[in-house]
């Protein structure tokens, strides 16, 4: 609705009431109050049942046996190893996907070439692959019975049931996050700024650093945030390639599973609460970015 504003006779739609519900309260097109309240009530009930109760469960179960046990579950060596591995995985996977996202967005948004639409679809591909299948594909290649299996064992290189496999699987499932945030954003911005900078004598690198990057920083942060959240929380793909060796190839989500299956519920929920906390921080930052810098994020956002 970004029509020529001067044609629209603003007083009938003052900006602060334009699309908001206040204008509708008096307008011809809204529902009776009782309908509104019932719908709002219904929506909130649904959210509570499906989202808030599970979240609350995590923390309640985690602290069921007191905070001493909670703390003990977190500083136990296997838990610490899992935390370390999770952080390590994210520290490798996120920057790599960030670099990829920047390159892909630069090539796609700033240049015309054939097959661009196909390329964009391919980048999204990992989202439509089951995480378990994502793990499987690396097992088929690097696993003991995989294509390179015997060669790898001859050279004493371990990928599956080891950290490299976990990192690979994580990279796969978090592959599109940064790219799909940046591509629409940079396409929207076009190339005018870059051309202006280059015409003023800036080098390509200077142009990227001083012109492009400031324009996409919030979108970039947004993508990194989502990428990191998924990287630390990924379960299915990592589960396939990890081998579940305690203290060595267990990430936090896998550690949660092991504890849970051993009926150490409190400890499982204690580690889970850390991951839930990460989710809450991610959500808060994401909402803050959307609220504060919404116009500098990509207009089209789906996950």
């Amino acid at each position: 609705m970004s029509q020529d504003a001067s044609l629209q006779d603003p007083p009938s739609l003052p900006p602060e009431f334009g699309a908001g519900p206040l204008a509708r309260r008096n307008a011809a097109i809204t529902e009776a109050p009782w309908v509104r309240y019932i719908l709002i009530g219904f929506a909130l009930l649904f959210l509570t049942g499906f989202l808030f109760l599970p979240l609350a469960t995590v923390f309640v179960e985690a602290f069921r046996n007191g905070w001493r046990l909670y703390l003990a579950a977190l500083i136990e060596p296997d838990a610490l190893a899992a935390i370390r591995l999770t952080l390590l995985t994210a520290v490798i996977a996120v920057p790599l996907n960030l670099l990829f996202g920047l390159c892909a967005a630069w090539a796609i948004a700033k240049f015309q070439f054939r097959g661009k639409a196909l390329l964009i679809s391919l980048i999204d591909l990992p989202f439509s692959v089951s995480p378990v299948v994502a793990g499987l594909i690396y097992v088929l290649i690097f696993g003991a019975h995989g294509w390179f299996g015997s060669w790898l064992s001859d050279h004493d290189i371990k990928i599956i049931f080891s950290t490299p496999g976990i990192v690979l699987a994580t990279i796969f499932v978090t592959f599109p996050f940064v790219a799909r945030e940046l591509i629409p954003l940079m396409q929207e911005q076009g190339t005018d700024y870059e051309q202006a900078a280059l015409s003023l004598g800036a080098s390509g690198w200077q142009t990227f650093w001083h012109v492009t990057l400031p324009n996409i920083r919030w979108g970039l942060l947004f993508g990194v945030l989502l990428c990191n959240s998924r990287a630390m929380g990924e379960f299915g793909a990592v589960s396939v390639v990890s081998g579940h060796i305690r203290g060595q190839t267990n990430t936090m989500p896998l550690h949660v599973e092991i504890l849970y299956n051993e009926y150490q519920f409190s400890a499982a929920f204690a580690v889970a609460s850390l991951l839930a906390l990460l989710a809450l921080v991610t959500l808060s930052l994401k909402s803050y970015l959307e609220w504060r810098h919404g116009d500098e994020l990509a207009a089209t956002r789906k996950h």
Binding site: L51, F235, A272, T282
Partner: peptide, 13 residues
Amino acid sequence: LPFALPTAVAGIA
């Protein structure tokens, strides 16, 4: 939340 919450956590919850 379902995007952000690791699936294993959601599962046990």
